[in-house]
Design a protein around this nucleic acid. Structure first.
Length: 587
RNA sequence: GGUCCCGUAGCUCAGCAGGAUAGAGCAAUUGAUUCCUAAUCAAUAGGUCACAGGUUCGAAUCCUGUCGGGAUCACCA
């Protein structure tokens, strides 16, 4: 087991089971933890076992701690224990344990730290899902990165992850898109169209789509009834917009497995649409009825009309109010399409559905959770993570964006200016539910102010050490096999072993980050690891004996390079989760 | 008015499913460069964890309430 904290939790559980009154009592041991102490003076591992058991056993925690510590002291990996504070047991492990752990890291290589969490569990992560009406703008950036990194993280942790994009290719905005394209089509035929009318999309990116229609249809569409040309223009426009969006996503390094079409839910197959079928299913559960909704509290809208409509009784499954399924014109609502969509996902076998949404969708969360419960009969988990707003700055000044045409910054603008890696890392260097300031100047700065640079530099520095070793010891073998067989016992300095201990935290971080759906924890961990590695490197300045490369001692160099290799492996794994490169050198 | 999120050092933020004396970076002060990349490192200083109660061996963390900031609230997507 590569997670030493989990391993010792098991060992301590076994010791605890031998305490009088524990094994058959059903005492809750889930609160028993083994963690790295915050203060290194407290040893390598610490457990709260005695405190957790004190109450149910009605014993003094220190008495229990003595018993558990005795048990631990007969563990060959343990060199010492001490009982501290209210009953913590601090544990120190022998050097050879950490030296062997380094071998484990090297053996497991890029798989180290992963693969332990519910292997093969089918998880669906839906993210981005931007409307196909134009290129992606900065606002989509954060959700795209967080979703993608979360998918990477869950896959690394062992789940079977499907990355999904819900294409909103039905509804009013597609009609607007098609009309906007049609205008560009007429323009491409030589017509003078003047200013783009209010209510249509003005962007230049529609110009080539108009031209494409001319290329394929000549002026034939001009002769058609509106309904006829709309039917032709819509799919062409949607495809063109999705091509744009896929290009934007590729620039960010984001890739989806499934693009799910909302329109397909409206289309009838075997007589009935997927939406109608799924609503039938809800009706069968007694969760659909005809009724009226109360007007919103507070400031009531001017045009409020009290009307009977088809409703989902979501209050039965945890929502605040029931939700409309049909519009006044009889069409299904956007939410009705979601009913069909959820059912489709559930039928595809997903027991966990994760959604990454913008903060403006906060009001939508409860009905999604309610819908998940209803459709799955409570057997599937629906998790919604909201990403707060990103504020853009340039040299400390906020960048103003108005909704006027052409005055918004696209995702591509940002990626082109600061690079994919910086965008991705910075978007993850904050928890998702905190707002994020993004300063173009700071993000491209090459200094420790900039965590992207700092972490990548650590990786490059590790590679650089290997290059140096190759120059100093041209005859030595620093290949993977040689490193795996290095004499780890030569690794004796506290700073070196401390670095191994920091590496040992990685599996624990991956586990916790995956369980809590918080990929940002990986980014923060990488910063800490990089910091510790830079520190050890610099220690070699004052104490040349600590340098990694010793041209007169190939054995010691091999051992130290094994450590350097392990650091670069873990940094590379972490950066892969984040979706940034682990460069061999910085320029 | 309802719901959700946030409030931690001068600034920007972490705080690991309740743990020990609350941690980083920036800014401030001091020091290190014939050296495996100084694009870095070491050290000092900096706190009423918004406020008030509660839960318990123990709370920044969980619960209730208050204050402050943000998002959202039939029919659009």
């Amino acid at each position: 087991m590569s997670n030493v904290f989990a391993a010792f939790e098991d060992r301590i559980q076994k010791i605890v089971q031998t305490l009088d009154g524990v094994s058959d009592s059903g005492i809750d041991l889930t609160r028993l933890t083994v963690e790295p102490p915050r203060d290194p003076a407290h040893g390598h591992l610490a457990t709260n076992a005695a405190m957790v058991l004190a109450k149910p056993l009605k014993k003094n925690p220190r008495e229990i701690a003595t018993f558990v510590a005795d048990g631990l002291n007969s563990d060959p990996d343990v060199t010492s224990t001490e009982i501290a504070g209210p009953g913590f047991i601090n544990i120190r492990l022998r050097d050879s344990f950490w030296q062997e752990h380094l071998s484990t890291v090297l053996e497991q290589g890029s798989g180290y730290g992963g693969g332990t969490l519910a292997p093969g569990k089918k998880v669906n992560v839906e993210y981005v899902s931007a409307n196909p009406t134009g290129p992606m703008h900065v606002g989509h950036c954060r959700g795209a990165v967080v979703g993608d990194a979360l998918a990477n993280l869950l896959a690394f942790a062992g789940h079977d992850v499907t990355r999904e994009y819900y294409t909103n290719d039905a509804g009013g905005q597609i009609e607007v898109l098609a009309r906007s394209v049609f205008l560009r089509y007429r323009e491409a035929l030589g017509e003078e169209i003047g200013a783009i009318p209010e209510g249509l999309y003005p962007g230049d990116y529609l110009v080539p789509v108009g031209q494409l229609l001319v290329d394929n249809h000549g002026d034939a569409l001009l002769m058609m009834e509106e309904a006829a040309w709309l039917a032709i223009v819509k799919p062409v426009a949607i495809n063109a917009m999705m091509d744009l969006i896929r290009g934007d996503l590729a620039a960010l390094g984001v890739r989806h497995d499934v693009f799910f079409s909302e329109r397909s839910l409206h289309e009838a197959s075997k007589g009935e649409s997927a939406i109608a079928t799924s609503i039938d299913a809800l009706t069968g559960m007694g969760l659909v009825y005809k009724g009226t909704l109360p007007p919103p509290k507070g400031t009531a809208p001017e045009d409020w009309e009290n009307r009977e409509q088809l409703l989902f009784r979501s209050t039965d499954v945890g929502d605040d109010m029931d939700r409309a399924l049909q519009k006044s014109n009889g069409d299904f609502t956007y939410f009705a399409a979601d009913v069909g969509y959820f059912k489709d996902k559930f039928d595809r076998g997903f027991k966990e559905m994760i959604f990454i949404l913008g903060a403006d969708h906060g009001g939508y969360v409860k009905r999604m959770e309610a819908l998940g419960r209803a459709i799955s009969g409570g057997t599937a988990d629906v998790t919604v993570r909201l990403c707060q707003l990103v504020k853009l700055f340039r040299d400390g000044e906020p960048i103003k964006m108005s909704k006027r045409s052409g005055d918004f910054i696209t995702l591509r603008d940002v990626v082109d200016e600061v690079g994919r890696d910086a965008v991705r890392f910075m978007m993850l260097y904050r928890k998702n539910d905190a707002p994020l300031d993004f300063d173009f100047a700071k993000v491209t700065e090459q200094s420790k102010d900039n965590p992207v640079f700092y972490v990548q530099y650590a990786h490059a520095r590790a590679k650089s050490v290997f290059r140096q070793a190759g120059r100093d010891l041209p005859d030595a073998d620093f290949g993977d096999d040689a490193l795996n067989q290095a004499d780890m016992a030569l690794l004796a300095d506290e700073a070196e072993l401390g670095l191994v201990r920091q590496l040992a935290v990685f599996p624990r971080i991956v586990d916790a980050a995956a369980r809590s759906h918080e990929p940002h924890r990986v980014a923060f961990y990488l910063y800490e690891l990089a910091s510790q590695f830079h520190a050890l490197w610099n220690k070699g300045r004052d104490e040349p004996a600590l340098r990694f490369v010793h041209h007169e001692n190939a054995n010691l160099t091999t051992t130290r390079l094994a450590l350097v290799k392990a650091v670069s492996l873990v940094i590379a794994s972490g950066l892969a989760i984040i979706g940034a490169d682990a460069p061999d050198e910085m320029r």
